[in-house]
Amino acid sequence: MDEIIRFEHVSYSYPTEVAAADKDGAASGSSEDRSVTPAPALNGVSLAVRRGETVALLGHNGSGKSTLVKMLNGMLTPDTGTVTVCGMDTGGDPLKIRQQVGLVFQNPDNQIVATVVDEDVAFALENLGVPPAEIRERVDAALRDVGMSEYKSHAPHRLSGGQKQRVAIAGVLAMNPTVLALDEPTAMLDPKGRVEVMETVRRLNAEKGVTVVMVTHHMNEAALFDRVVVMDKGAVALDGSPREVFRRAEELQALGLTVPQTVALAQALGLDAAPLTEEECADAIYHAYKGEPHC
């Protein structure tokens, strides 16, 4: 299995306290607490992600997960240590690295540049100087991949949150990236929009083999990934399959996180199981009461 992303002993501190307060990009009230302690945003992180893997990044505010995501495409470069993506050091040619790693942010409104959907999707390709005919093709393909083809001549502000976020995904997808990195893409969406985005991301992984790294606060979303990485104080605290990680509910709670509702229910019933879907949860409860171990 070839590694697509490799972090080696990566440490990083934001240059000023103002920047540190803003490091999570989240408009949360806890920014004051963070700026008081000038701890490094990342502290000796080592991590490897394989091609085609889907990784959910968890962690409370200020744990360094957004910083880690911004390291993926060289928006931030480590103070010490190295980040390698597709065999390239992220300190190298930014255009090449950003083509490999498409980065999508939380607020869909603030990442759409153009006044028409297809022109926005074309933005990255226009920047890269791709010939017009090819741009057209790749824009249409990207919009098809996120299921937004019929909206291609719409104005972005008329779309729903989930649709806007899919346009934003198409905007980076047009570059044909190897890695799709998403920083809390569902945080500002309603439940319907969250499902739309999650389905799109999973489909892109399944059909196109895109490697996915996604920051999320929703445990039920994290349960759908191949792998869950929990960050705390700028370091990797837990790393494993969702089943392995969610089984350690107490450690998660100590890190300020919860577990998916299905896991919470199973554990409240005293079962030694980490069911990730409702189906599994029902099975686990059924088997537990019949006296057979499961999961």
């Binding site: 990009g25 495409n73 928006m75 930014p94 255009l95 950003r98 083509q99 498409g102 980065l103 942010f105 607020n107 603030n110 990442q111 540049v113 297809d118 022109e119 074309a122 933005f123 990255a124 390709l125 226009e126 920047n127 890269l128 100087g129 791709v130 010939p131 017009p132 741009i135 057209r136 824009v139 934003a168 905007g171 980076v172 570059m175």
Partner: peptide, 20 residues
Amino acid sequence: ELAVAMECRCYHGGKGRTRM
């Protein structure tokens, strides 16, 4: 935020830019 998002999509000014 928009500036960061634009940079992530390889924006580097008008040089060498094409239009769809």
